[in-house]
């Protein structure tokens, strides 16, 4: 495959899907913008280096979403030592938020704070299951774990999110699956 052809296809892909990948990264990184941007950049570079696999994928965006999850897990694991010491109690962070603003902006900060208090793999489970709408088996395949692990991580994560949001002025209605 010629470089020019690969580059042209890559540019089209980035133009179409970068925003989607950034939204995914924002959730995975719990609103850490710099971390999310770095995850996106690393993912796009990896996709370019293995562009043949992206082309052969049934759904290139789905392939990219799996890749970004892997990049996030790698980076989160590597950065864990440093990052884990900087995470604050999300309810403390929320207490400092301004009380005025649109519902969505307030909700955004609350949800990101709650996601930040989950472990990286639990966060990935939530994003894969409830943002990418993958089933349990596919989520397990992406994360390289058993379906039972996905179910238990998902249940714990949702219970935690419900607790954190319940401590604020918001309620989260959700089904634990």
């Amino acid at each position: 495959m010629r470089d020019s052809e690969r580059s042209a296809e890559f540019v089209v892909f980035v133009r179409a899907h970068r925003a989607d990948l950034l939204r995914t990264a924002t959730l995975l990184c719990a609103g850490d913008d710099a971390f999310a941007e770095d995850v996106v950049q690393t993912t796009l570079t990896r996709l370019y280096l293995s562009w043949g696999r992206v082309r052969r994928a049934d759904v290139p965006l789905a392939y990219a979403r799996r890749s970004i999850t892997h990049v996030f897990i790698d980076e989160a694991r590597l950065a864990h030592r440093r990052r884990e010491t900087t995470l604050a109690d999300p309810t403390e962070a929320l207490a400092a938020e301004p009380t005025v603003g649109t519902t969505d902006l307030v909700l955004r900060e609350i949800v990101l704070g709650a996601l930040a208090s989950l472990g990286p793999r639990q966060r990935a489970v939530v994003v894969l299951r409830h943002w990418h709408d993958l089933d349990v088996a596919e989520t397990a395949r992406v994360l390289g774990c058993s379906t039972g692990t996905v179910k238990s991580q998902n249940a714990r994560a949702l219970a935690h999110l419900r607790d954190v949001l319940g401590a604020t002025d918001h309620q989260l209605s959700l089904e634990v699956s």
Binding site: L27, H170, S173, L174
Partner: peptide, 13 residues
């Protein structure tokens, strides 16, 4: 206010 999870994630993303 009550939110479903998808909407909450959408707002957060």
């Amino acid at each position: 206010p009550s939110h479903d999870l998808t909407r909450a994630l959408q707002a957060a993303a």
